[in-house]
Amino acid sequence: MLRLPQFGVALPSNVDAVVALLRDNPGARIVAGGTDILPNLKHRLDEPGMLISLAQVSELRSIAKLAHEGREVVEIGAGNTLTRVSEDPLVRELFPSLATAAGLVASPLIRNMGTLGGNVNLDTRCRYVNQTKFWREALGGGCLKSEGNVCFVVPGGRNCVAAMSSDCVPVLISLGAEIVLAGPEGQRVVPAAKYFKADGLRHTVRDDAELTTKLRVPVPTTPRRSAYAKWTVRKSIDFPLVSVALRFDLKSDSVDAPVTELVVVAGVLGAKPRVIAKLDDVIGKPLSDPALSRIVCAAVGKQCKPLENVPYEAPYRRRMFEVFTRRAIAELVAAG
């Protein structure tokens, strides 16, 4: 039995009321599906006096295609469950890699509860912190992210490097999504690629008084192939140990057509997802060109430096980042 700490619960019914509650109750935390925050509170990683539940905020649950600033976008409310995101016809048609990632989170039960907004704001994870308080005490009193002042992953380190472990985040970055926030000063829009920081204690630019209201994902304007690769030991329930999102925009609708733009993003490294750089050599090469796969995989292997913040040896995970990238590209090519 893992008891929650004592707190009050507010059940506002719209976004304005959530913002007012956040403003008036410093230290209060948002609970959406509860599948991340409640285990963390049961482990005493925080003891907020109040939880603000989004359970009754139905305005956060729409999915709609619309014109925005001269381009077509799909707006996905932060309160949609991952089950809905993975099954929604619009998402499946326009952003298949997002539907895949949402459908690979945890288990069907957790996807029925967990929301996209909670997935984007999922706390960073580490094998030394996502444990009971009793377990952490046995280590000698926790680390920077819990009760202590040391880091067990990087001995002597003064910066927490707990892993950004969300399945949807690398995909949202690869798709050029924007995160829409509501706060006391009104609405603010942050590109998903700029939302995360390399600090495991506070890994997003979201202010405590803000909530994520929706994700705005631009509709592709060229033919596209996209994929999400995840490695876990079990095929269900587990957080990713390797997580790579890939997006290739093509000159025409064939894997033999030249790539006009590409974005590759890796998660489960440190607190910030990594957008793979130096892929310019790939532009103009057909997706089916084996040289393309070699260049992308080499860049992934070089730039992804996993840490021992999650299970498995870092050098092994580093190789697996390459392997899973290679397989994902091969599958895209095979699918035509």
Binding site: L11, V31, G34, N112
Partner: peptide
């Protein structure tokens, strides 16, 4: 919908 009662706040 099947969900986990251990991660559902009763009041929600």
């Amino acid at each position: 919908e099947p969900v986990l009662a251990c991660l559902t706040l009763a009041c929600a």
